[in-house]
């Protein structure tokens, strides 16, 4: 029995190999893109819309609402990244009910890759919003001596993101596998249902944490001088 789907290799050539993680990632990607493409072919703004359009609007609307509540900013610039993150993790975990399927999120490589994406997305969004100087300045707060700890904090939270998701998904599938050996009837089904729930919760947690990190990086703190300037400009108006 393999702990990670990385170990299941289907094809290998000159250091390039196709393992179960990549393969099932493609499957997930294909499903997501196919559904998106099919559902968004004939979009209408009229009162009568297709069920698929309605379904996707609910999901996207919910993501937008969550991101807006957390960031307290216009959510649209973050939606493609955070939305994709949530949908990928969610669908990857959801498909775990299909026999033979290996969730890509059960691989530390996948969760690590996602965490690395988040790790780089935070400064990209931060710099885009506040400028490089303002962004990197926060590493020196509250004092310059805290800079190493701030950097370590960034790395550690990225690591925590990756390991948390990997641990949960991997443990879920391991538990089911172990229970199948001990009690092959009924109990694994319950654990599988629980695994589905945990999978969705983890997708939510991963996305929310990524949102929080990005929100903290992009939030413009109103300094006293800035507040005074704003009030002054309002009075001028």
């Amino acid at each position: 029995m393999e702990i990670s789907p990385d170990a299941i290799i289907f094809f290998k050539w000159n250091g390039i190999h196709l393992n179960a993680t990549i393969l099932f990632t493609w499957v997930v990607m294909l499903i997501l893109i196919l559904i998106s493409w099919l559902a968004t072919r004939n979009l209408t703004i009229g009162p009568k819309i297709s069920r698929w359009q309605n379904f996707l609007e609910v999901i996207v609307g919910y993501i937008r609402q969550q991101v807006k509540e957390i960031t307290q900013q216009n959510p649209d610039p973050f939606i493609p990244f955070l939305g994709t993150l949530f949908l990928f993790i969610s669908v990857s975990n959801l498909l775990a009910i299909i026999p033979g399927y290996q969730a890509p999120t059960g691989s530390l490589s996948t969760t690590g890759a996602l965490a690395i994406c988040v790790f780089f997305a935070i400064p990209i969004f931060g710099i885009a919003k506040k400028g490089a100087l303002a962004y990197f300045k926060h590493y020196l707060e509250p004092s310059i001596f805290m800079a190493p700890f701030n950097v370590i904090g960034d790395f550690s939270r990225t690591l925590a993101l990756a390991v948390r998701l990997f641990g949960n998904v991997m443990s879920g599938s391991l538990i089911v596998a172990v229970l199948l050996i001990i009690t092959p009837l009924f109990i694994p089904i319950v654990m599988q249902v629980l695994g589905l729930l945990i999978g969705q919760i983890q997708a939510y947690i991963f996305t929310v944490l990524a949102t929080v990190y990005i929100a903290s990086a992009t939030r413009i703190e109103n300094k006293p001088e800035q507040i005074e300037q704003k009030e002054g400009s309002k009075e001028d108006e």
Partner: peptide
């Protein structure tokens, strides 16, 4: 091996 650089 839990981490595979190529996979990442």
């Amino acid at each position: 091996m839990l981490l595979d650089s190529f996979t990442i």
